[in-house]
Design a binder for these strands. Sequence first.
DNA 1: TCAGATTACTTGTTAATTGCAAGTGAAAAT
DNA 2: ATTTTCACTTGCAATTAACAAGTAATCTGA
Lengths: 143, 143
Amino acid sequence: MPRRRPRNQLRSGCPLNVSVEILGDRWSLLIIRDMMLRGFRSYSQFLDSYERIATNILAHRLKKLEGYGIIATRQDPLDGRKLIYTLTEKGMDLAPVLTEMVLWTAAHEEHQNPELIRQIKKDKQKFLASVRQRWLENSSPVD
Amino acid sequence: MPRRRPRNQLRSGCPLNVSVEILGDRWSLLIIRDMMLRGFRSYSQFLDSYERIATNILAHRLKKLEGYGIIATRQDPLDGRKLIYTLTEKGMDLAPVLTEMVLWTAAHEEHQNPELIRQIKKDKQKFLASVRQRWLENSSPVD
DNA sequence: TCAGATTACTTGTTAATTGCAAGTGAAAAT
DNA sequence: ATTTTCACTTGCAATTAACAAGTAATCTGA
């Protein structure tokens, strides 16, 4: 019986491969985008996002991202049904990756949201700083 | 400058989504890495790369990347069996994306290739310039 | 010159993943 | 008390990935 390569084992330790194995699918980076740039924090917000992720895939991705320490989950103190998902520092550190991907698309593909691109192009470091600042303000445990 | 939209329908025009739809899988960025950083140019080189891509998937990805204008294919004038795959300008413009992904892994995950990371950290712009320079030298139609 | 090797694939089959629809149980709102 | 909201789960079909094997064109060495 030939055994298939187990999924939980890395194909290689190449740093690019490691990030591809963690983030290289059709949804993970979009969830991170929604948290980072749109301030989404709840399951239903992600579900209602424009690209229409399926609910089972969303649940799997959230668990995976939490398992990698990219997002953190806590209960909403004001509503027992709700969970609050936030980016960790590790998740926030993906901001430069997302930013470069946006710039690449802006340079080479048809796209929307010219305002976002204008903002990034005007001053990339300032954009990254403002994204991080908003995260610091909004991810405080008490709010 | 924005260019044509590929035939299949996009989930959204969000610039991050566009790049995820083009590059968000388990192999595309690894092929681009092999071309960009290791100077790979042939089918058999990609096949022999450490992560062991399956041959049918490699063939599909090369066609997809060529369709998006990220790579270009030409015949080897010295060997009628061989095709030479090279990155286009659009493909080379993914260097900052790959670089940021490598830096993120270096900061947050177990990995290998400390020399690459040292080089990037020492001077990111210089690293990007040297990658581009090698591409300019090696992608000339006559060689 | 011709057998064997190399190259860039294709084809067939199985395994895994994704996507869709519907359902669940706890908590909140009315 | 009933309905609605919320964060999921389950079942199943469709799509995609992975593995093994094969093929045609070309090159290489005796």
